[in-house]
């Protein structure tokens, strides 16, 4: 019995057990402090839903052996451009969302291919170079937002600034389109079935893909390139496939995120989008060499739940001053750090 329990803990990972316990303590104290439990729980679900695809984007890149995709802003920008174009075309509702996705994905395929070519040239340095490539592309796109020829009244500055607004409201276009779809309030929790369903479909799709010929080939490249070579699989080709998929998911992910958030964020916002996704998947138990859908779901859930619950609870416990935010920074980064020191420690 003890043996089995130990094995279970080993499999699940101390990090996650620690976080779950911590989360549990937080929820219990939230209950004790008479916080809005329903709103907290619903918040966790919505956050998980809106961030899931961005975290999912890490899976193809890890599986194909390029590590964590710090170049995720590349994909995100494709999605944002898609959304901007769909607004510029004066589309609304489902049409706008669909059009944004189609354009975003098309751009992401091209961008992902180019980015993949770059990554193939810099094997073993992908993560560092991805970070800088992301920074650079975001800055480059800032110029685009300034110089872009769109004149849609929804997007231009109200006081005569050149270019597009920093945040574009999606209220009249596709804001909340997934969040509101099949949204069902229950006694203890509100469940956004539409949002969760939508993102889970993509999880399912990636799961299915990982069972296809190409998917298996891609994972083989990631887990043992020499084996893959001996099995007649093109290593560079599969890495490109992984990067394209990751970029596409980034593009679709930001659209899910934006419709839930209600605003489209241009300029420097995409810069910071990769870090929460990276943190989430690491916390989920993935390593830079191995990741699965389970890691994505568990990780996104835990990471986001921590963000949702930790601050209100610490706020309630420490109502004076801003100690709560500092405590949150220390704990959440500390846990990521802890997870990282586990990578080298073997399994």
């Amino acid at each position: 019995m003890g043996q089995k329990f130990r094995q279970f803990i080993d499999n699940f990972g101390y990090t996650r057990i620690v976080i779950i316990l911590f989360l549990f303590v937080l929820l219990v104290s939230a209950f004790a402090l008479e916080l809005q439990i329903k709103s907290l729980l619903s918040g966790i679900l919505i956050r998980t839903g809106m961030n899931l695809l961005l975290t999912l984007a890490m899976v193809p890149s890890i599986q194909s052996g390029t590590g964590l995709n710090f170049g995720l802003p590349v994909g995100i920008l494709c999605g944002v451009v898609g959304a901007v174009l769909s607004i510029a075309m004066n589309l609304t509702g489902g049409q706008a969302f669909f059009a944004a996705n189609v354009i975003g994905v098309l751009l992401a395929v091209v961008a992902g291919y180019v980015y993949g070519l770059l990554l193939n040239r810099v094997k073993n340095q992908e993560m560092l170079i991805g970070t800088y490539a992301g920074f650079s592309v975001v800055s480059g796109m800032c110029m685009f937002w300034i110089l872009a020829p769109f004149r849609s009244p929804k997007m231009i500055w109200p006081y005569g600034g050149r270019g597009l607004r920093v945040t574009v409201s999606l209220e009249d276009t596709f804001g909340g389109i997934l969040n509101k779809f099949l949204f069902r309030p229950y006694k203890w929790i509100d469940i956004p079935w539409g949002l969760l369903g939508y993102v889970l479909i993509f999880c399912l799709f990636i799961w299915l893909f990982s069972r296809s010929k190409t998917g298996i080939a891609m994972q083989t490249v990631g887990s043992n390139p020499r084996f893959a070579e001996a099995a007649g699989i093109s290593i560079d080709g599969m890495r490109i496939v992984g990067t394209i998929l990751s970029t596409v998911l980034g593009a679709m992910g930001i659209l899910v995120y934006a419709q839930s958030y209600g605003f489209l964020q241009l300029y420097t916002a995409p810069l910071y989008m990769a870090f929460p996704a990276v943190a989430a998947i690491l916390i989920g138990g993935a390593t830079v060499h191995k990741a699965s859908i389970t890691h994505v779901i568990i990780g996104t859930f835990l990471f986001q739940a921590l963000l949702v619950v930790a601050l209100p609870v610490t706020n309630a416990v420490l109502p004076e001053g801003n100690l709560s935010e500092v405590v949150r920074i220390i704990i959440s980064n500390g846990i990521i750090l802890y997870a990282l020191t586990r990578i080298g420690g073997g399994d």
Partner: peptide, 25 residues
């Protein structure tokens, strides 16, 4: 000859190891 380096996906299942090349090629 390099069983663990080239010959096997050590973290994968037996069935996947067996079927992989035939599937890909």
């Amino acid at each position: 000859e390099d069983r663990r380096g080239v010959g096997l996906l050590l973290e994968e299942s037996i069935e996947k190891n067996i079927a992989l090349t035939a599937m890909q090629v």
